[in-house]
Each structure stands twice: as C-alpha cells, then as structure tokens.
Simulated scan of single mutants.
Amino acid sequence: MKVGFISDTHGSESRWMLAYNKYFKDADVIVHAGDVLYHGPRNPILPDYNPAKLAEHINAVHCPVIICRGNCDSEVDQLVLETPIQVPYALAFVDGRRIVVNHGHCCMSNEEKDSLAKAMKADIFVSGHIHTNVLEKRGETVFLNPGSPSLSKREDEKATVAVLEQDVVRIYDIDADEVLMELKI
C-alpha cells in the first residue's frame, strides 16, 4: 500500500501536478493536511496560482483523497472539490494503521499533538501549517508534517511531500527527487 502526504498547496496547480506525477500517481490514498486552494492573506500569490484548475486535478485523482481543513480553506472551496474537506481533523484507516490529520493551526505544540494523538489512538499523526518538515516517533505515534510543495518555509526552501510505502515514511524534495528524511515504522 502506498500513501501520499501533502499539505499547504495554496492553489498552486503546477506544484500539485509535479508532486502528483512524481510521487502520487500510483498511490492508493492521498492525504492532504489542509490549505488546499487559497493562497492565504499573508502568503504571496504564486505565479501558477489557479485554485479552480487545482480543484479539477484533485477531483480527477484515481484514488481517494482525504482532506483536512486548514486555516486558509473555506466552505466555498467545498463547492469545487468533490472530496469532503473534514474539520477539525480527518481520520482514516489505511493498511491497518489509524491516520489522524489535523492542519495544525489549532494544535500547535507537541503537547497538544501528543494529547490528540493519544485520544485518537493515532499510529500516524499528520499536520501541516508550518510549511516545514517533521518526521519523528514519540511514544507509539509517528508525527509527520510533509511540508509544502509550493510555499516552503524550510531554511533551504526545498519543496516537499511525503510517501509511506513498505513501512517506511520518506520526505522528498520534489525538485531534486532527493530523500530528505526517512523513518521506518
């Protein structure tokens, strides 16, 4: 089973397509941790900002897409997305694992995330919002932030997504096709 993880696309059609074509086209499930279509008032408008076209691409995906609402997502986005935007978290059972997704803007600290992960009995806890990567195991839970393919806030500004395959989570630089982080679960 292959699971793709993405967050904070912010309406960037080309960055979604790059991530999808390189990493997700053969995925069984794609998990989006929020901030899907809108660029957000503090973010620059991206050169390829096209939320309507991005919604079309997401609607055309061959596998289920699980979306958790981010702070830049709105009810109006649901009018163009066929997949429900779930709030305040999304819950999925994939290949025997309980995956909990929360965008992260209402659950920022590790203590808050640990508490929610414990309450939800999460095997994998996915968040976004900060546009930087997290991949670590605390207790029995893997905590993952795939970063952003379009508005990276990493020091090196690498655009990233994550993939779970064969019990290994990898975070990729989607431009260099390089593994930046890896964790066996």
Rank of each mutant, 00 (worst) to 15 (best):
T141M: 11
R42I: 15
N71F: 13
A27N: 00
I30A: 12
V161Q: 03
D156K: 02
G34N: 03
A19I: 09
K158F: 06
D73Q: 04
K158V: 15
C68S: 15
I6F: 05
D175W: 09
P51C: 14
L37S: 01
E157I: 05
V134Y: 03
A117V: 14
L81C: 02
G40P: 00
A52H: 06
L180H: 07
L37F: 05
G40W: 01
A19T: 14
V179G: 07
V142H: 11
M181I: 09
S7M: 12
Y23A: 06
D175R: 12
G147S: 03
A27M: 00
N21I: 09
E75M: 02
E165H: 12
A33R: 00
L46G: 05
T141D: 05
I67Y: 00
K22D: 11
H129C: 06
G128H: 04
E112Q: 15
L180P: 00
D177C: 13
V134K: 06
K153I: 02
N110R: 07
G34C: 09
S148G: 03
E56W: 02
A90K: 02
V101M: 11
V80T: 15
Q86V: 13
S7D: 08
L46V: 04
F93S: 13
Y89I: 09
G147E: 03
A159D: 02
I58P: 04
V100R: 03
V163E: 04
H103M: 01
P64K: 11
G40L: 04
L18P: 00
S115D: 05
L46E: 03
P149Q: 04
